[in-house]
Write a protein that binds this DNA or RNA. Structure first.
Length: 998
RNA sequence: GGGCGAGUGGCGAAAUGGCAGACGCAAUAGCUUUAGGAGCUAUCGAGAGCAAUCUCAUGUGGGUUCGAGUCCCACCUCGCCCACCA
């Protein structure tokens, strides 16, 4: 009987249709069976279609899912489309086709490709991030962040891609370039929405410890990205340095001659005077630091009138733009009245200043209450002072902390809570207050043990100290020039390797090293980064190589304070050692000195490299941020009932490049009503980044059509977490980090049942072209998977893709290699047909065939469980090479087809049907092996002499050492070796090997 | 500069510390075919030898072990990630 030719095109189309019709891959919610959730990263549907790189995780997930279903698990293997993003929009710009249209077309094409590969997705759960029914929930979750205080708007220097004309998150900048288009990223000062991922830095780090099934490399990469450092925060006082002139007359510092420098006015409160409370001490302390201080005795201190006292201050005190007012209690009210009058001040400190006019002790203070009831004109107040400091006492029993919080809200700042020496900050000495009111530079260091060696300080060019001390810095012109230049430089330039360090000293001010009490110079240099730590450092040139390099160049002093084993003449000694030249700390080891010195001079603190996530994009094709700006109510979230905020159809999606979204031109969409006060208001015009929709998508698969919730809680509980997540290494510090963050947050909000979303992460290597280079259009080395399907069939494509190499390693595609797999499938087809068409019913299999089959079951099962697909394919080939001469029955063939099914499902189904199988192999149980049938009665045991193979003896694998040894000694090669030697020792590995030591 | 990973035939690669190179590609010879292709059979790390066989071989150099591609140390090369991160 002629054998029908193997025709992959025909049988593949046939089975793909049957699978779809019977919906056999659809997962059942809340099934009694144990569940498995297999996930592969959903694709961005680009115009070029899916490529070889997509195939790898999808086929791996498919093999695994088909295997799990046969193993009896309720298996969910879903798919969807991550369809918002720049390429669709850029294409739209070029061709004038709306992104929704190109996206639709691309999805249809990608889906066709996936179906042609025979992937067993549950298509009933298909999702699309650009579908309003989906992004309604993306918006809703954003508001959840907003309401929890984890989404905030702030102006800052952000990464900006000049080509894509949008802001970028830190994670989207790869080697100083835009992750999407490769353009060098610049820094731009912009008002942006941020998600406070830093609030989850510790949780993201901690969570990694509970992910034993994640590859170490992925965990390490996330750990490094979060970048936790433990060290100390230490404050260095800043003082005006002696001017040239004052030096001439011999006095160190004469405050009266320092024109334009910071000066202080202390305003006492009700029932106070310049000589009461902490004021004399505070005054002396500030004067000791070199500042001019005025402290008027205000009129009618017993029952004060705010306006009268303000008049008095104007009359009696010298006030200019560099004046800092410290207003204690009612004195703070007076300071605010000055600002209301249009008097410009540098900074105002409110110390326990009343706001409500109500007191915790319920006593009446009529004059104070009266003044408070008048209210404050905060608009004017904010206009006239550049900065505020709100210091409130946690032990105060008169003025409530809520008064401080009210001021904080109106003045858009935070309350600094201090435990006073006496309640209401009225002790004779209040060091907490002094620390806050006197200018200082906060630094972070991991080496507080070297503080005695801090011989200068460096601030980043963006540090506000520079502007704050504008008046005192004598070489300000030079400084400003340096700062401007540094800000203009692209990040890449600034951090370029081997670049020589530059900087300018801030002449006219000095810092005081809190350990040595010495005055040290302050520099600005761009080797200190504004974005990390506090944007300022104490420089210890003896023990930090960067500081060393800088100190050498600018001839700054170098003081060694740690003795290390390694003697280094021309570089810094950065290792731990024994502390020296450090007073009472001498002799301590660095490890011991670090916590001790941190406590002495500051406090232990933790810093992370992770930055908050810049979450707004100035582009069209993304989820609109669901917020409304109202003149009276401020930022108001769109109420749930009005979600989704649909992306409007616009004619022009051209990015403006100004930092405004194209949506800003859509007046009709832009104008809306404030949900709170119903007055006219404006919509937020920024859209969300690419990564928003994918930050929660796996949750939606549990219940993709739910219109009431992002997913039903019971269904979530059944399906979560993802058991295996297939995806690329490139998402480690992008999607994978972001989605863990969202999930951890949603867990804290009680919206999901699992802390961590993915139990196991299975990364895959890149599929390279035959030349070992990345496949790319420009190189012309792209292999289109559809060409392989056309030429050889999907089963060949799938198996070859798996056969290329280990799943997690990069592999090179080799066109010639494909035929090897095709040949194998041809032979399987032929062999199958031979067994099926055998007229004489074979009733038993040969012993050898039995052994081969049970070994294969064991091997394939273990390989799939460990994602070693490449060796599975080898084993199939090896099996086939050995079994083809043996006689086997039909059941035997069926077991083989079950094993083959996850890898090459079409051919397996077809042969199974020809064999008389009535149902899909998917519904069959996975074969079990019989351990009894794995080995032969006799086996070859290797005989070695001194570890070198001399021969083999054929014995039972259960043979004893003596038996094996006796037989081994009979081998001619062994006899010959033993002519002049004797066996000193024998090592026997049961059933495998004997080594004779002579 | 820091972290992680990898170096095995002409190529992709395999090998719980136990026969290195399974499996596949390419190559060579033969059979088959009008030819090309495809298929089938055999050979296929290097060197020596008529041969049985022997010697050398897993980036380099040491070490541990009865025995090392595998474990340890140092070095070299490549890849990835981070990077003036205080």
């Amino acid at each position: 009987m002629p054998i029908k030719k193997y025709n992959p095109a025909q049988i593949e189309a046939k089975w793909q249709k049957i699978w779809q019709l019977k919906k056999i891959f659809n997962a059942r919610d809340l099934s009694k069976k144990e569940k498995k959730f297999v996930l592969a990263e959903f694709p961005y549907p680009s115009g070029a279609g899916l490529h070889m790189g997509h195939l790898r995780p999808y086929v791996a997930g498919d093999v695994y899912s088909r295997f799990l279903r046969m193993k009896g698990f309720e298996t969910l293997y879903p798919i969807g489309w991550d369809a918002f993003g720049l390429p669709a929009e850029n294409y739209a710009l070029k061709m004038g086709v709306h992104p929704s249209i190109t996206t639709k077309k691309n999805i249809a094409n990608a889906k066709k490709q996936m179906l042609s590969w025979g992937l067993s997705f549950d298509w009933s759960r298909e999702i699309n991030t650009t579908d309003p029914d989906y992004y309604k929930w993306t918006q809703r979750l954003f508001l959840q962040f907003y309401k929890a205080g984890l989404a905030y708007e702030a102006t800052g220097l952000i990464n900006w891609c000049p080509k894509d004309k949008t802001g970028l998150a830190n994670e989207e900048v790869i080697d100083g370039r835009c992750e999407r288009c490769g353009t060098a990223v610049i820094k731009k000062e912009l008002r942006q929405w941020y998600l406070k991922i830093t609030a989850y830095a510790e949780k993201l780090l901690e969570g990694l410890k509970n992910l034993p099934e994640w590859p170490q490399a992925v965990k390490l990469q996330q750990e490094n990205w979060i970048g936790k450092s433990v060290g100390a925060e230490i404050s260095f006082d800043v003082i005006p340095s002696a001017s040239e002139e004052s030096l001439k007359v011999g006095s160190l510092r004469d405050p009266s001659t320092s024109v334009g420098m910071t000066n202080y006015i202390i305003l006492h409160g009700r029932n106070g005077s310049p000589d009461s409370h902490t004021f004399p001490w505070l005054r002396k302390s500030l004067e000791d630091k070199g500042y001019k201080v005025q402290a008027p005795a205000l009129p009618n201190a017993e029952e004060p009138d705010d306006e009268e006292q303000a008049d008095y201050v104007v009359k009696k005190c010298e006030i200019n733009e560099n004046t800092v007012i410290i207003g204690h209690s009612f004195g703070g009210v007076v300071a605010l009245r000055l600002l209301e009058r249009g008097i410009k001040l540098k900074k105002v400190f409110l110390l326990c200043t009343p706001y409500s006019g109500k007191f915790l002790d319920n006593k009446k203070r009529a004059s104070v209450t009266k003044a408070c009831k008048k209210g404050f004109d905060f608009k004017k107040i904010k206009e006239n002072a550049s900065d505020f400091g709100l210091l409130y006492d946690t032990t105060d029993y008169v003025v409530p902390m809520s008064d401080g919080e009210s001021f904080a809200e109106k003045l858009e700042t935070n309350v600094i809570k201090i435990k006073g020496a006496e309640p209401h900050l009225s002790g004779l000495e209040e060091p907490g207050v002094l620390k806050e009111v006197s200018p200082s530079i906060e630094i972070f260091t991991t080496r507080p043990d070297t503080i005695f060696g801090a011989t200068y300080m460096v601030v980043a060019p963006e540090h506000p100290l520079i502007e704050n001390f504008k008046a005192q810095i004598t070489n300000f012109k030079e400084v400003r020039k340096y700062v401007e230049k540094a800000k203009q430089k692209a990040e890449m330039e600034r951090t370029a390797e081997g670049k020589e360090k530059t900087g300018v000293e801030l002449k006219g001010i000095k810092a005081i090293n809190p350990a040595t009490k010495e005055e040290i110079p302050v520099w600005v240099a761009d080797y200190v980064l504004w974005g990390y730590g506090t944007g300022a450092i104490m420089a210890v040139p003896a023990h930090d190589s960067r500081d060393f390099e800088f100190a050498k160049k600018y001839h700054l002093s170098i003081v060694q304070v740690v003795q290390t084993d390694i003697i280094e003449a021309e570089s810094a000694a950065t290792e731990y050692g024994i502390v020296i030249n450090s007073g009472k700390f001498n002799g301590l080891k660095s490890e011991e000195a670090i916590p001790k010195m941190a406590e002495e001079f500051g406090k232990m603190a933790v810093q992370y490299k992770l930055r908050d996530w810049v979450f707004s994009r100035q582009r069209y094709w993304g989820e609109p941020i669901p917020l409304i700006h109202c003149e009276d109510c401020g930022v108001v979230p769109v109420p749930d009932k009005d979600l989704p905020v649909k992306l409007p159809n616009v004619k022009k999606y051209e990015p403006t490049g100004t930092g405004e979204s194209p949506l800003a031109n859509m007046t009709s969409w832009l104008k809306t009503k404030c949900p709170k006060c119903k007055k006219m208001a404006w919509r937020e015009t920024n859209t969300m980044p690419q990564w928003a929709g994918s930050s929660w998508y796996w949750l939606r698969y549990a219940d993709p059509k739910n219109s009431k919730k992002l997913a039903d809680m019971k269904k979530l509980k059944y399906w979560q977490p993802v058991d295996v997540y297939f995806g690329g290494m490139e998402h480690t510090t992008l999607h994978l980090l972001y989605s863990r963050f969202w999930n951890l947050f949603l867990y804290d909000q009680g919206l999901v049942t699992e802390r961590e979303p993915y139990k196991k992460r299975q990364p895959h290597g890149i599929v390279l072209a035959a030349d070992g280079e990345k496949m790319s259009k420009s190189r012309g080395n792209v292999v289109d998977p559809q060409e392989i399907v056309k030429g050889f069939g999907a089963d060949t494509l799938r198996m070859y893709e798996m056969f290329l190499g280990p799943h997690e390693l990069s592999v090179s595609w080799n066109d010639q290699g494909v035929v090897g797999v095709k040949r194998f499938l041809d032979r399987v087809w032929e062999w199958g047909n031979l067994v099926i068409s055998n007229k004489k019913q074979v009733t038993s299999n040969t012993e050898k065939a039995e052994k081969l089959l049970h070994r294969l079951i064991k091997k394939i099962t273990e390989d799939i469980e460990n994602f070693r697909f490449n060796t599975s394919i080898s084993s199939f080939m090896e099996f086939h090479n050995q079994v083809k001469g043996e006689t086997v029955d039909r059941e035997y063939l069926q077991v083989f087809l079950k094993l083959l099914y996850p890898f090459a499902p079409h051919i397996a189904e077809e042969l199974n049907e020809m064999l008389g199988g009535k149902k899909s192999l998917q519904l069959e149980a996975w074969p079990e092996f019989d351990p009894q049938k794995l080995s032969d009665a006799l086996t070859d045991i290797v005989v070695q002499i001194n570890g070198r193979v001399k021969g083999k003896v054929r014995l039972s694998p259960e043979a004893s050492e003596d038996e094996v040894k006796a037989k081994a000694l009979e081998l001619p090669a062994v006899k010959q070796a033993l002519v002049q030697e004797t066996v000193k020792r024998a090592i026997y590995i049961k059933g495998r090997l004997i080594n004779l030591v002579i």
